[in-house]
Amino acid sequence: MTAEFATIPMTGVPFPRPEYERRQQRVLEKVQDAELDAIVVTAIGHLRYLTGYDGSGAYFRPFPLILVPGQLPIFLVREYDELAVRAYSCIDRIEVYRHQVDFGTTCAAVLRRCDLLNKRVGFELGCWNLAPSDVSAIQVQLPDMRIIDATRLVPAVAAVKSELELQCMRDAMRMTDLAVRTFQSSLLEGITEREVLERMSAAIAADTSNTNGDIEMRLPTLLLGERTKLPHGPVTRHAIKNNEPAFFEVGFSKHGYAAGIVRSAVLGRHPETESTHALAEDVIEALVAAVKPGATAHEVDAAGRQVLKRSGRQNAFRQRTGYQTGINWSERGDLSLEPGAEDVLKPGMTLHMPNILCSENGFLIGTGAQVLVTERGAERLSTIPNTLHRA
Results as ranks from 00 to 15, higher is better:
residue 3 A to K: 12
residue 4 E to N: 14
residue 10 M to W: 12
residue 14 P to H: 09
residue 17 R to W: 10
residue 20 Y to T: 10
residue 21 E to A: 15
residue 23 R to M: 07
residue 24 Q to Y: 04
residue 26 R to M: 14
residue 30 K to I: 01
residue 30 K to D: 09
residue 31 V to A: 02
residue 32 Q to P: 07
residue 34 A to F: 05
residue 36 L to P: 09
residue 41 V to G: 15
residue 42 T to C: 13
residue 42 T to R: 11
residue 44 I to D: 04
residue 45 G to I: 02
residue 46 H to K: 06
residue 46 H to W: 04
residue 51 T to V: 10
residue 57 G to Q: 04
residue 58 A to K: 09
residue 58 A to G: 15
residue 59 Y to W: 12
residue 76 L to N: 11
residue 80 Y to M: 10
residue 82 E to V: 09
residue 83 L to W: 05
residue 84 A to I: 11
residue 90 C to K: 04
residue 93 R to M: 08
residue 100 Q to H: 06
residue 102 D to W: 11
residue 103 F to G: 00
residue 104 G to P: 09
residue 105 T to V: 14
residue 107 C to P: 07
residue 109 A to K: 14
residue 110 V to F: 01
residue 118 N to R: 14
residue 118 N to I: 12
residue 121 V to L: 00
residue 122 G to P: 06
residue 124 E to D: 04
residue 130 L to Q: 05
residue 132 P to N: 05
residue 134 D to H: 12
residue 135 V to G: 10
residue 136 S to H: 12
residue 141 Q to F: 03
residue 142 L to A: 08
residue 161 K to V: 01
residue 163 E to K: 02
residue 169 M to W: 09
residue 171 D to P: 02
residue 177 D to M: 05
residue 179 A to P: 00
residue 183 F to M: 06
residue 186 S to I: 03
residue 195 E to M: 09
residue 196 V to L: 01
residue 199 R to C: 10
residue 202 A to G: 08
residue 202 A to P: 02
residue 207 D to Y: 13
residue 217 M to R: 09
residue 220 P to A: 04
residue 222 L to M: 06
residue 224 L to P: 07
residue 224 L to Q: 03
residue 225 G to E: 09
residue 226 E to K: 13
residue 229 K to F: 03
residue 232 H to R: 12
residue 235 V to N: 06
residue 238 H to C: 05
residue 241 K to E: 13
residue 243 N to V: 01
residue 244 E to I: 03
residue 245 P to F: 01
residue 247 F to I: 00
residue 252 F to K: 12
residue 255 H to C: 14
residue 256 G to R: 02
residue 257 Y to W: 14
residue 260 G to E: 01
residue 260 G to Q: 00
residue 261 I to F: 10
residue 269 R to F: 03
residue 271 P to W: 03
residue 271 P to T: 04
residue 272 E to R: 02
residue 276 T to D: 05
residue 277 H to K: 04
residue 279 L to D: 03
residue 280 A to I: 07
residue 281 E to V: 13
residue 281 E to M: 12
residue 281 E to P: 00
residue 284 I to V: 15
residue 284 I to W: 09
residue 286 A to C: 14
residue 293 P to G: 00
residue 294 G to Q: 12
residue 295 A to H: 07
residue 300 V to A: 08
residue 301 D to S: 15
residue 302 A to G: 08
residue 306 Q to V: 09
residue 307 V to E: 10
residue 310 R to A: 13
residue 312 G to H: 07
residue 312 G to I: 08
residue 313 R to P: 00
residue 315 N to Y: 08
residue 316 A to E: 13
residue 317 F to N: 07
residue 319 Q to Y: 09
residue 320 R to L: 11
residue 323 Y to C: 14
residue 339 P to G: 03
residue 341 A to V: 00
residue 343 D to W: 04
residue 349 M to G: 08
residue 349 M to R: 06
residue 351 L to M: 01
residue 352 H to N: 14
residue 352 H to M: 13
residue 352 H to I: 11
residue 354 P to E: 02
residue 355 N to I: 15
residue 355 N to S: 12
residue 355 N to T: 15
residue 356 I to H: 00
residue 357 L to Y: 10
residue 359 S to F: 02
residue 371 V to S: 11
residue 381 L to D: 03
residue 385 P to C: 03
